[in-house]
Amino acid sequence: MLVKWMCCTVVDRRGFEQGQGGWADLLGEPGFRGQSGGWSRARPDVAHVFAFWDNRVFYDSFMAGGHERLAAEQSGTYTDMQVRLFEYRFDVKTGFEPHFTDADVVRVAHSRVREDRVEHFALMQEKVWNPAMAGSPGMLRGVFGEAPGNEFLVLSMWQSSAERGKYRPESAARLSARAEIERDVEDLTGDVVLLEPSWTV
């Protein structure tokens, strides 16, 4: 599975949201599995969108075909669009599916990992972070993805921001130390995204 993460600064909120409705046409695309997104809790003018495809072949076919027509609807409504693609590596919790109707918060964590620490980083995600997140109240499911250049994405879905708050901050500091995250990671950024149900395809 291919995971696409888009992040941009919105300058015309109403126009952007209207254009977001046009992405419902993705439902007819071969290999498309789901899309949703919402607004950054920390930066209200920043939008995140997450899309899921069976594989890169189907995604590339869409990008060469119908993408431009859909994207044109939002032209001029945003700046600083960043797009990253990640290959699925494993589930966070179990049984990941790109469904958003039962979630209202997505946590996204993006890491650049030192080359000699990549396998350790992935192992710690599987053995330390995954069990902790799976046992947290309100955590539904998630996905761990990898991109060239030792980049990794952890995308986790939660029932509410209040529930996700129970996962912070003492437990995260303890888990970070156990996972030796400072030795593994060169750069770590993240955000909490408040999902907009109307963006879900």
Rank of each mutant, 00 (worst) to 15 (best):
D187G: 05
R107K: 07
A51Q: 15
M1D: 06
R141P: 03
A179D: 07
D54S: 08
G142D: 02
D116R: 08
D60Y: 10
K166H: 06
T9A: 03
V3H: 00
F52T: 11
F90K: 11
V10T: 03
F100H: 06
A47Q: 14
D91T: 12
W39M: 06
D116H: 12
S61L: 10
T9V: 05
Q74E: 13
W158E: 02
P44A: 11
S171Q: 13
R43Y: 08
V143D: 02
G65F: 00
Q35C: 11
V10R: 00
Q82D: 14
L153V: 04
D80K: 12
L195I: 11
T79A: 13
G66R: 15
G66F: 07
L27R: 15
L123W: 12
R89F: 06
S40K: 00
L2M: 09
Q20I: 03
D25F: 07
L70M: 15
V185W: 01
G76A: 10
S198Q: 14
R14H: 11
T101Q: 15
L153P: 03
T94Y: 04
G65V: 06
V201P: 14
M63D: 13
D116A: 08
E180V: 01
R14I: 08
T94D: 15
E29I: 08
G138K: 06
E196R: 11
V201L: 08
R183V: 02
F52S: 04
P169E: 10
M1E: 01
H99D: 15
C7M: 04
G34P: 10
Q125N: 15
V106Q: 02
E151I: 04
L188G: 05
F52L: 07
A47T: 07
W39S: 02
S176P: 05
D45Y: 05
A109M: 08
M6K: 01
M157L: 15
S136C: 05
Q35M: 14
I181H: 00
V185A: 01
F144G: 05
V83P: 07
S75T: 09
G138Q: 03
D54R: 14
A72K: 13
L26S: 11
W23Q: 02
R112E: 13
V143R: 06
F90Q: 09
G22V: 03
F32K: 10
V108G: 02
F50R: 05
V143L: 07
E17K: 11
K93M: 06
V192Q: 01
F144I: 03
G145K: 00
Y167F: 15
A172V: 14
D116M: 01
Q125H: 13
G15Y: 06
M139C: 06
S198C: 04
Q20M: 14
R183D: 10
S156G: 11
S160W: 14
M133S: 07
A172G: 00
Y78E: 13
E97V: 12
G65Y: 10
A42M: 04
Y59I: 02
W129D: 03
M124C: 13
D116C: 01
F152D: 03
T79I: 07
T101W: 01
E87R: 11
S198W: 10
M1K: 00
V10F: 03
D116W: 05
G135M: 03
A172C: 00
V118E: 05
Q159T: 13
